[in-house]
Nucleic acid binder design. Structure first.
Lengths: 232, 232
DNA sequence: AAGCGATTACTTCCATCCTAGCATGCCGGT
DNA sequence: ACCGGCATGCTAGGATGGAAGTAATCGCTT
């Protein structure tokens, strides 16, 4: 009676969660879209219970908003939340790269270098998807080397909101070569223990990906939450 | 047929969640304790569904661990997680207090001062509970004044783990007068825009509350997660 | 007595059903 | 024409029974 259950993650709840999250982050389900336990249950071929639990988790991550007895809706993009996600990531990544300069396991350092090589390779192949993965892996390795993997997973959750905003200006052309230069410079700074330089590089690096929020808000006003509110 | 449902929070799910969280954080349910949907449902006088959803939320916050088809257990205290929570809080609070020095709304500044007065008052009354609240409110006001309330709520979630570790060494006697001095000094530094001083104060301030983890691990070894693991 | 397979008692997971509350539109009164 | 009250169809919240899985124990075999 069970379908292939393609998206691995074993439990029905996780499958629904992963599926919906993907659709929300890719804007396939644009902000404001009404969801319903019943419909989603039908769409995924499961009962309402796992759907409900997936909704709950998405609500905790502020990706949907559930109004009892009214419905569940894909959250509008909250500019404050996006900016704070960026803020937190910047603070944490800068602190970590300073730690890395003070002492970084050789194994992780060579992982960074391997990653850089792979980035070059992917650039020649214009493999954007792979580059995105490698970018993530690069930063992850930074945290791993500093024994701060839990911090990294917190950042990844923040990134949900950043990414959704980022995706709006698709055809995004993220200047991969520029990013690569920064990554390479960071790795060298770590190897040489140049804290200030590394910090500076990271700050610039993280400010790159920021879209002009204002511009986006003009273009897709109904995707954004109005400034004035008393959320929660 | 329904009981008074005393603990406000409207939904049964929230009541169960809040109740369990309280018991876990107060160590009334010590790390390692086995929970069960059925028992908790009976204890709270609700059905298994809201209990299950509360478990799910607690699991996301890493306060419990649910092993499918085996049981749900209060998480062991993960020293890494505690240390990283402290780390993240330090980075974010320091960044925010620097922001505050660069510009802080007069209204929030006077809120800080009112809070300080209330702290003095509570100290004379030896009202520890109130002091704890005021301490939280003080920091919250910092974030509020900088427009970083979302960041504050992330920190609060981190604090779950910090607090559980902190509670172990109860009879904690947190040297309130010392904390008050630091708070007062921070408020002044903000008023005067002395970034470096404020940063330094905050760093010291946040390193106060740290228990000697090692000592605690010796005393309650079975409450802690062993070092070696490949969690998550 | 020791080893090992079947059973049993437990868990979480999921499906289904029922309930309560909100929104909309009809309908009658003014 | 407008406005108040009600019927109806929606929603999520909660309760419950059974399915799937794990782990420990009992009982048989050797």
């Amino acid at each position: 009676m069970n379908e292939p259950l393609g998206t691995r993650g074993s439990s029905a709840r996780d499958i629904v969660y992963a599926g919906l999250r993907e659709q929300i982050l890719s804007l396939e389900l644009p902000p404001g879209t009404a969801l319903s336990e019943k419909d989603s249950a039908a769409a995924f071929g499961v009962s309402r219970t796992p759907v409900r639990e997936a909704f709950l988790r998405l609500a905790q991550e502020q990706l949907v908003q559930v109004l009892p007895q009214r419905g569940t809706f894909v959250s509008l993009i909250d500019p404050e939340l996006v900016e704070e996600a960026r803020f937190m990531r910047e603070q944490l990544e800068r602190a970590v790269i300073r730690l890395a300069c003070a002492g970084f396991p050789p194994l992780s350092l060579s992982a960074l270098r391997d990653n850089l090589a792979a980035q070059q390779d992917a650039m020649t192949r214009l493999d954007d998807r792979k580059l995105f993965e490698l970018d993530e892996a690069f930063h992850r390795t930074l945290f791993e080397g500093c024994g701060k993997l839990n911090t990294w997973s917190v950042i990844q959750q923040m990134n949900l909101h950043l990414n959704r905003a980022r995706l709006l200006r698709l055809a995004t052309d993220p200047h991969w070569s520029h990013l690569y230069e920064q990554h390479a410079a960071m790795a060298e700074a770590i190897a040489d223990g140049r804290e200030e330089a590394a910090d500076d590089l990271m700050r610039q690096h993280l400010r790159l990906g920021i879209a002009d929020q204002e511009l986006l808000k003009k273009e897709y006003p109904h995707y954004f939450k109005p400034e004035k509110e008393n959320a929660q």
